[in-house]
Write a protein that binds this DNA or RNA. Structure first.
Length: 344
DNA sequence: AATCCGGGGCT
DNA sequence: AGCCCAGGATT
């Protein structure tokens, strides 16, 4: 049930979180800078992505693209290459577009106002709030999954986080406990949410605000947050042909719709003239969040130069080899297939 | 307002 | 096997 929040004030909660953060903040590379470019990249990389999973990608990305101008002038495919294996590939396409936006609309100077940051491609309310508060003293709460979990437990609030109004609702809840230093508060909520107030088996004994947590006092932390939406993974069958000759194989680039946006893949069909060169096939299972993939992978060793050349010409495939494939971004199961081929 | 988009780790 | 994660775009 929603608690009556008309009386006392809850700001001491925010101050305790802030104090905890000063002594327990995780030592992460993007914690030692207020460069809005780095904070922005960091926020995009770690959307729906755990720190341990994305940390190397973040470091490599910043090393190769240290500022807005370098990123804006890079080729899109190289940006995608640095995103290889991270998932949600539209993020890579969007930050590249946004970097060019900053060059064109703000003379390469990262915008400081929430409303301007929000206009950048791939930047939503969460990211705009995070960057503006951490880098420019903005006062918006960066409401994310951590906020939903921590706040719903603090107030034993059963507001459905699947509801499209959840962001607004929990923003107002956050405002009740928010201290002056919103940038540190936002980061404190992230660290408490990921290290203490975990989805399963939260470490309530170590929580700096367990005295104020209604769900903890009721021993009902596992009841929050309430989430009604349930997604089922559907089955999807794919067929690929690993068409190779003399150590070279054929690839093409996917479109920017559906899955694996603009990543490279193998041909999905072959002409009947090529069928005699199929030497083997195997099925690869691969799980995505919303799909269970079953990939039928045909090995096609083409010994006829004529058939090989005709196929390339008619379909405009790209020729690469194992070495050259390192310069392109492939979906995870295809990346694994290439790596396994490398061993032979 | 509902649906889609990856990959990895935890339970 | 299901759930979660420093969300946003698209329809």
């Amino acid at each position: 049930m929603e608690q009556n929040r008309t009386s006392p004030d809850f700001r001491h909660i925010g101050n305790r979180l802030l104090e905890w953060y000063r002594n327990n903040a995780r030592d992460l590379p993007f914690r030692q800078t207020k460069d809005p470019y780095k904070i922005w990249i960091c926020e995009i990389v770690f959307q729906q992505t755990r720190i341990s999973q994305g940390l190397n990608h973040y470091n490599n990305f910043i090393k190769r693209f240290p500022d807005v101008k370098t990123l804006a002038e890079a080729e899109e495919n190289e940006v995608l290459l640095y995103w290889k294996g991270l998932g949600y590939y539209s993020r890579a396409i969007n930050i590249h577009t946004a970097a060019q936006q900053i060059m064109d609309d703000y003379q390469g100077i990262f915008p400081s106002q929430y409303e301007d940051i929000l206009k950048l491609k791939g930047v939503g309310k969460y990211t705009a709030a995070a960057v503006s508060s951490i880098c420019f003293g903005g006062k918006m709460p960066a409401v994310d999954g951590n906020f939903y979990r921590v706040l719903s437990r603090l107030f034993a609030d059963d507001f459905d986080v699947s509801n499209s109004r959840a962001f607004t609702y929990f923003s107002e809840l956050a405002a009740l406990i928010m201290p002056e230093n919103v940038g540190d508060f936002n980061q404190a909520m992230m660290d408490v949410g990921s290290e203490i107030c975990k989805p399963k088996n939260p470490l309530c004994g170590e929580c700096p605000v367990n005295d104020d947590c209604l769900a903890f006092s009721l021993q009902k932390t596992s009841d929050y947050p309430v989430k009604s939406k349930k997604v089922k993974a559907e089955d999807l069958a794919l067929t690929y042909y690993f068409v190779h000759r003399n150590g070279q194989f054929l690839i093409r680039q996917r479109k920017d719709d559906f899955i694996w946006k603009k990543l490279f893949e193998f041909p999905i069909s072959i002409p009947f003239e090529m069928e005699p060169f199929v030497t083997a096939s195997k099925t690869i299972s691969h799980k995505l969040t919303h799909k269970n993939l079953s990939i039928e992978m045909f090995n096609v060793e083409v010994t006829s130069e004529e058939v090989w050349n005709d196929f390339i010409t008619e379909n405009q495939y790209l020729i690469t080899d194992v070495e050259g494939s390192h310069e392109k971004s492939f979906p995870k199961p295809l990346e694994n297939y290439i790596q396994n081929t490398l061993k032979d």
